[in-house]
Amino acid sequence: MTFETSNLIGGTFARLEASRKFLFGAASVCGVTDNSVIRGAFLVRGQEAFPAFDVAPNFESYKFTKLDPKSEEDKTFVNDIWAWDKPIEVNGKTYKWADGKMFK
Rank of each mutant, 00 (worst) to 15 (best):
M1F: 10
E4K: 07
T5I: 14
T5Y: 02
N7V: 06
L8C: 05
L8H: 11
G10K: 15
F13A: 00
A14H: 05
A14M: 11
A14N: 12
R15T: 13
L16G: 00
L16N: 01
L16Q: 01
E17A: 14
E17L: 06
A18W: 04
A18I: 03
A18N: 10
A18H: 07
S19L: 05
R20T: 09
K21T: 10
K21L: 10
F22A: 13
G25H: 04
S28M: 06
S28Q: 12
G31D: 01
V32E: 15
T33F: 02
D34H: 11
D34W: 06
N35T: 07
N35P: 00
N35W: 08
S36P: 00
S36H: 12
S36I: 04
V37D: 01
I38K: 03
A41M: 06
A41T: 08
A41Q: 09
L43R: 12
V44C: 07
V44M: 03
R45E: 13
R45I: 09
R45F: 09
Q47C: 02
E48N: 11
E48S: 10
P51Q: 03
P51W: 06
A52S: 14
F53A: 00
F53E: 00
D54T: 08
V55M: 03
F59G: 02
F59Y: 15
F59N: 01
S61G: 07
Y62L: 15
Y62W: 12
K63A: 11
K63W: 05
K63D: 09
F64I: 07
T65V: 10
T65Y: 08
K66A: 11
L67R: 03
D68I: 05
D68T: 08
P69W: 06
P69K: 03
K70R: 13
S71C: 11
E73N: 10
D74Q: 04
F77T: 07
F77W: 15
V78Y: 07
D80K: 08
I81T: 13
W82T: 09
W82N: 12
W82R: 08
A83S: 15
A83Q: 11
W84T: 12
D85T: 14
D85S: 13
P87A: 12
V90W: 10
N91E: 15
G92P: 05
K93V: 05
K93W: 06
K93R: 13
T94A: 09
T94H: 03
Y95A: 05
Y95M: 03
W97T: 06
W97R: 06
W97Y: 15
W97N: 10
D99H: 13
D99K: 14
D99E: 14
G100F: 02
K101W: 07
